[in-house]
Design a binder for these strands. Structure first.
Lengths: 230, 230
DNA sequence: CCCCGTTGTGACGGTTTTCTGACAGTTTGA
DNA sequence: TCAAACTGTCAGAAAACCGTCACAACGGGG
């Protein structure tokens, strides 16, 4: 579940496939919706990390999809990149004010699209694009798949690794068990919410080798967060 | 929270003043730097919420400023909007990959600039706009689930946390016990009205660690309100 | 100044939430 | 193919929290 999931909302078959092909190659997981209604459905079910949205769509217009995504609590903070054929300024402004994060004018350059996607994702999930994440004395290396803490080499199982990775992307932020299940385990797979506790426990034990303080904070009836100091 | 501060990095006097004038009118506080070195200095000192950066600058080029801002821990997450005269795609990509969040091609439309600024700030600052509440020396962070008062970290149980959260949304306003029960406990669940007293008491005790004055005002036969000073 | 409705607070039993060790099934890699 | 590593679930223990009560303290009107 490490790679970001991107929802592509585009009715033109050819363009959609082009987008999917290129984004797949960049290491993203792509989902496709052919019209506005399907988009809303998938956005809710899959909770993607980014939505690429055509401005002209059958059934629901892009602007409407945009507005609804912003209105829905679950998708409120999901970034949106708009694809538009019309380059008029008024349209562009309207898009940004509806809550879109960026837009691209057709015809689209794939290199530029990739750059925009990286920029937007970096903003929303800082550390995602980077190979290393550091928080306090904890270092996580995505490439080497290694974790160190203050001169200790820490061995983590796959799940604990992804869990720590996710927590480190937004340090100090509290994630509910459900959120963690969604983003660490995956939105589709079902496991007991209590399972998170167990893995947090294992993560703690691993990270506390050598008498280091507990880096995970439990927030009663809310979830967990990565947080050194106290 | 106070109005967002914007650092404008632009060597052309005329354009700089135009930008300042318009952004001031939109309710932002603006700071001005005339070259790259001054920009780095001010960015570090003032830690603005957003940087508007000309691509062509004396002393330090825009791309260099951009890179350095991203390298500095303090300014790493500060959003950057780039102003460029050249519209070549390669340049645009380079800007975004260096860590810029958006760019505008000169000549600049002020309406569009305002829209971009709004869009970028909304993305980056949900933390200050709605996820954090401040009243006097008390700070409540909904995302990190933390409460601080004048350098003291305050631990609150779930109920006290929600209670304080609610009181802070309308400081100085008096809430009756029934209102508090409705909005903090929930309209459906029934508990004794006096229970509010107990939790207010616990909240007070927690908030007064370190000899701080009592921030909760009791209004006889009416209710409670959050109110520093008196 | 006294009375009485109102509020503050320590104590306490009960409940909810979290922690943790154990365990059985599954995957992985040599 | 087999052992080691990993995973999810569960149940009991521990911890944190909750609501209620009893009584003390308070404060304003009479």
């Amino acid at each position: 579940m490490a790679e970001p999931r991107i929802l592509i909302v585009e009715d033109e078959e050819a363009l959609a496939q082009l987008l999917q092909y290129n984004l797949d190659r960049e290491g993203y997981k792509t989902i496709r919706a052919a019209d506005g209604e399907e988009a809303m459905l998938l956005a809710d079910e899959e909770s993607p990390d980014l939505v690429i949205l055509d401005w002209m769509l059958p059934k629901l217009s892009g602007i409407e999809v945009c507005r609804r995504l912003r209105a829905n609590r679950k998708t409120r903070n999901t970034p949106i990149i708009i694809l538009t054929a019309r380059a008029e300024e008024t349209d562009r402004i309207r898009g940004l004010d509806t809550g879109a994060d960026d837009y691209l004018v057709k015809p689209i350059s794939m290199t530029e699209l990739a750059a925009r996607v990286r920029a937007v994702l970096r903003r929303v999930r800082p550390g995602l694009a980077e190979d290393m994440v550091v928080h306090g004395d904890i270092t996580l290396d995505r490439v080497a798949h290694r974790v160190r803490r203050a001169d200790y080499e820490i061995h983590l199982g796959p799940t604990e690794f992804r869990l720590l990775d996710h927590l480190m992307q937004n340090p100090r932020r509290v994630f509910s068990r459900e959120q963690l299940l969604d983003s660490v385990w995956g939105a589709d797979i079902y496991v007991e919410a209590r399972t998170v506790d167990v893995h947090v426990g294992r993560l703690r034990k691993a990270l506390m080798q050598g008498g280091q303080p507990d880096p995970v904070r439990t927030v009663r009836s809310a979830g967990y967060s990565l947080d050194l100091e106290s």
